[in-house]
Every structure is written in structure tokens, then in C-alpha cells.
């Protein structure tokens, strides 16, 4: 299979194809250098999501569609923690860790139930999930893979924070719904902070509760999309890094940490789709 030729062919019939997928173009070029496993095993998946991205995904504008997107993300988190608590509960019995994971599990299930109650008959069904992303990650529910479980938890929480943030402007026509979404958004951020503290205690010693630059920390490279775009040092034309005030010089690291960036619908869905069976 020659990816470059396929892309060329598509471009001849659809001149705008390149523009729509250009952020991914580099990734495709790089695929030829990837390991055997990804090149042979994950390529159909990668191409599949690439095509869906170019042609199938547009930001919904109807409130219910936005909420169903949120519900899909919550289904993912709820099932992830429900299975995670069941899988790792015995080994973690009596620790603060299992207490925290149980708390988060309850929140995520409450979010699912809340969104379903709002959407009523319009709610989408729960998809089937594959938390190995078709073999990209080791099974997070294997008791030997607790670290993988926590790494994915971090990626899901940080994705959730960024995804809700990206959807808020599309909920402005209904203030009640918007406020509810904001009240979920901040809870996801509290979860993210706690999971990051857990991972720090578990060995990723330089990890902070907040996101520095676009650093993913010691989680697998496949999760980099969760952090791309977090490295902004300028907010609404105000360049903050390098500013000196009250004797404090604002570093690039601090400035990027101080603002979490939104993820577009497409980028957030692409991340979620990796885990949909």
C-alpha cells in the first residue's frame, strides 16, 4: 500500500482534501517510519479515522447533538472507571487510590445519568469500547497494568476537560444547559488534577496537576493528540510569557499551565474513536 499515492489520487478528484486533512498529513508521512506493529496492524484503523475525519465529522450546532457528544465521552469514562475499579480494587484494597478511583467512577456514572435524563429519548446508546485501542495499549484492566490504567485515566480526564471547553460556545443558546456543562467541565478538571497527583506518587515524579506546554508526561506517544495545542503563550493577543510584574517573570511553562486550551469537536472525537470498538 502506498499512502502517498492514495493521497495524490484523492487530491485529483477532491482538490480540497489536502486542506481538510493537512494536520494529519505529517502523521501519514511519518507512518512509513513507524514500527512493524503500527504499520501492519493499526494502519487500517488510522486510515479509517482519517477518512471519517475528513468527510464525516462536523461540529454539531443543535444542543442535543452537542450533549450526545458529551454523553459519548462520559460513557467512555464511566465504563473505563467502572471496569478499572473492579479490576484493580482487590490489589488496591484499603488504599486512598481505590477510594479516589471509586469517587471518580461515581461522578462519571452520575454524569452519564444526568445527561441521559436531560436528553431523554434523544440520548445516544452507549458504544462498545476497546480500551486497548485495538492493541495500541496493553490491557488497562489486567492487574499487572495499573500504571497503564492511570496513564489512560489522565489522558481521558485531560481530553474531557478540553472537549467540554470546546463545546461550551455551542451551548450558549440555553443558559441552563451551558451552566450544567460548565459544572461538569470543572469536575473533570478536578479529576485530572487528582489522577495526575496519583501518577506523580506512582513514579512520574515531575508530573504536575496542570498541563505544562504540550507535554504528555510519561504516557504513551499515542496519546500526544490529547496535548497538542496546549502550548499557547499568548491569549487573545496578550503575550504573557516573558512578562515581568511584581518582580515575577512569567515563564513560558507557567503561562501554558495557567490556561487549558479547548479541543475542537473533530479532534476530541478522533481521540475518543480510537477507543470505540
Amino acid at each position: 500500500m502506498n499512502l502517498q499515492n492514495i493521497i495524490k489520487e484523492i487530491e485529483t478528484v477532491d482538490p480540497e482534501f489536502h486542506e481538510r486533512v493537512s494536520p494529519r498529513r505529517e502523521a501519514i508521512k511519518n507512518m512509513t517510519g513507524f514500527g512493524k506493529k503500527l504499520a501492519l496492524g493499526a494502519l487500517p484503523l488510522a486510515m479509517g479515522s482519517l477518512f471519517t475525519k475528513a468527510y464525516g465529522q462536523t461540529q454539531p450546532t443543535a444542543i442535543n447533538d452537542v450533549l450526545n457528544f458529551a454523553l459519548t465521552l462520559e460513557y467512555l469514562e464511566a465504563e473505563f472507571y467502572t471496569r478499572g475499579v473492579a479490576a484493580h480494587g482487590a490489589a488496591l484494597a484499603g488504599t486512598p487510590a481505590i477510594g479516589a478511583l471509586t469517587t471518580i467512577r461515581n461522578d462519571e456514572n452520575n454524569h452519564v445519568n444526568f445527561l441521559k435524563s436531560v436528553l431523554a429519548a434523544a440520548a445516544v446508546a452507549k458504544p462498545n469500547f476497546d480500551f486497548t485501542a485495538k492493541g495500541t495499549f496493553p490491557d488497562p484492566f489486567n492487574t499487572a497494568n495499573y500504571a497503564v490504567f492511570l496513564a489512560l485515566a489522565q489522558a481521558f480526564e485531560d481530553t474531557g476537560v478540553r472537549a467540554y471547553k470546546g463545546q461550551a460556545p455551542f451551548l450558549m443558546s440555553n443558559k441552563t444547559v451551558l451552566e450544567a456543562a460548565l459544572n461538569i467541565h470543572s469536575v473533570e478538571a478536578r479529576h485530572a488534577s487528582h489522577i495526575r497527583q496519583m501518577r506523580k506518587a506512582n513514579g512520574d515524579t515531575t508530573l504536575k496537576p496542570w498541563i505544562t506546554g504540550n507535554n504528555r508526561g510519561a504516557i504513551p506517544a499515542a496519546a500526544q493528540a490529547v496535548y497538542n495545542g496546549e502550548e499557547l503563550e499568548t491569549q487573545a493577543t496578550v503575550k504573557l510569557s516573558g512578562m515581568v510584574v511584581d518582580g515575577i517573570t512569567l515563564s513560558a511553562a507557567a503561562v501554558t499551565e495557567a490556561f487549558d486550551e479547548p479541543l475542537s469537536y473533530k479532534d476530541a472525537l478522533d481521540i475518543a474513536k480510537l477507543f470505540i470498538a
Binding site: 461550551a168 460548565l182 470543572s186 478536578r190 479529576h191 488534577s193 497527583q197 496542570w210 491569549q235 490556561f259
Partner: peptide, 13 residues
């Protein structure tokens, strides 16, 4: 929204 989630990270810590 960019700011509130960082405040929430602080709060949780």
C-alpha cells in the same frame, strides 16, 4: 473556560 479548569486543578490539589 481556559482559566476555570486551571482553578479547578488548583482547587483539587
Amino acid at each position: 473556560g481556559k482559566i476555570v479548569s486551571v482553578e479547578a486543578r488548583h482547587a483539587a490539589l
